[in-house]
Amino acid sequence: MEVRTIKVFTTVDNINLHTQVVDMSMTYGQQFGPTYLDGADVTKIKPHNSHEGKTFYVLPNDDTLRVEAFEYYHTTDPSFLGRYMSALNHTKKWKYPQVNGLTSIKWADNNCYLATALLTLQQIELKFNPPALQDAYYRARAGEAANFCALILAYCNKTVGELGDVRETMSYLFQHANLDSCKRVLNVVCKTCGQQQTTLKGVEAVMYMGTLSYEQFKKGVQIPCTCGKQATKYLVQQESPFVMMSAPPAQYELKHGTFTCASEYTGNYQCGHYKHITSKETLYCIDGALLTKSSEYKGPITDVFYKENSYTTTIK
């Protein structure tokens, strides 16, 4: 009895394709271990004539594949690729409408935090270190965002349907971005203890939790000093293409032309909904596939993004 075979390709990165001759009487799992086709788990399936010449994702289970996976995804987590594939199996079914010149995501599976993050990423200057993220990001900007969303979920250790947080998501993504040249110098002034300067680099240099107003941050924000008295913390120097200011959701007025974009969060910790506000020729609110415009805006804002380049204080 002759062994019926077909020729397929296996890959971990969709760049390096490895030619395989597979036995049609055995499952993919018996031949390769966990195997995925377009995100779908085909591990328990036997090869079919229609699979001839198709590319299958496999887990990096030998040295060659491990090197290829690390170079593309910059992670050695053995569960990463499987999590990416199972997320992709959902995100490829989502709709990605162009809204006001940006790629958004039609609401499904509690994905409003991903839509808000995706919209924000198209408006701030950011370059990702893992080629996987950078490639998928370019495709997302062009309207094909399924891979990018699935990668975000995998890097953030999230599953489809789980509630997510924009600030946490951005923080994970910033860790995989090139923020080497970003720098922030802060000064804390206390009447009792004097003053202390701190220099922050990388992710810490672009994120701040405690106030939404970048102007206020430049002037000074009140913080408790270690001595128990009130101290003032203010920005001395900022070198970065953008800054992200966050605070627990509270009524906040966004003035046209003073910011790049913002995240609105309605609801409580267990259950809520994100919308995205962007400042173009007027203010726009993007909620999944829905767009509304207004000249002014007041609502429960939790993150505001500002364009920056270089700032030095005039406070002496």
Rank of each mutant, 00 (worst) to 15 (best):
L235Q: 00
M244H: 03
F9K: 14
M207F: 07
L200R: 07
T64N: 09
S294W: 14
L59F: 10
K307Q: 15
E68K: 11
D287A: 03
C225T: 01
F9M: 13
E162F: 01
P249E: 02
A40D: 15
M209Q: 15
T266I: 09
A150N: 08
Y265H: 05
E239W: 05
H90L: 11
L186D: 04
P248I: 02
G53K: 12
P78V: 09
T75W: 01
K106E: 15
K229M: 12
Q175W: 03
Y84R: 09
Q122Y: 04
P300I: 15
G33N: 02
T292D: 09
N129R: 15
Q197T: 14
S79D: 15
T302K: 01
E162Y: 08
E125P: 10
T302E: 02
F148P: 05
L119I: 06
G33F: 02
S86P: 06
F32G: 08
T292E: 12
A145G: 10
Y265G: 04
G257L: 05
S171G: 08
A154K: 02
D13E: 15
L212T: 07
T10N: 06
C156T: 11
G210K: 01
C271D: 08
W107E: 03
R4M: 12
K191A: 12
K7F: 08
L102I: 03
F148Q: 04
M24K: 08
A247F: 04
G161C: 07
C112Q: 05
G288S: 04
T198E: 10
T5W: 12
T35Y: 05
F174T: 06
F128S: 03
Y306K: 00
G288W: 00
H18P: 05
Y138E: 14
Y73V: 06
G257T: 04
K233G: 10
D62C: 06
A140V: 13
V12K: 08
S50C: 12
T11M: 03
I286W: 04
N61Y: 14
A205H: 05
K54I: 13
I277R: 02
L173G: 00
G267R: 13
D303H: 00
T278S: 12
L153Y: 15
S263D: 02
C156P: 05
A136C: 05
Q216L: 06
I152S: 09
K233N: 07
L153D: 04
C149Y: 02
L65D: 09
D62R: 11
Q251L: 15
G202C: 01
L88V: 09
Y208W: 10
Y73S: 04
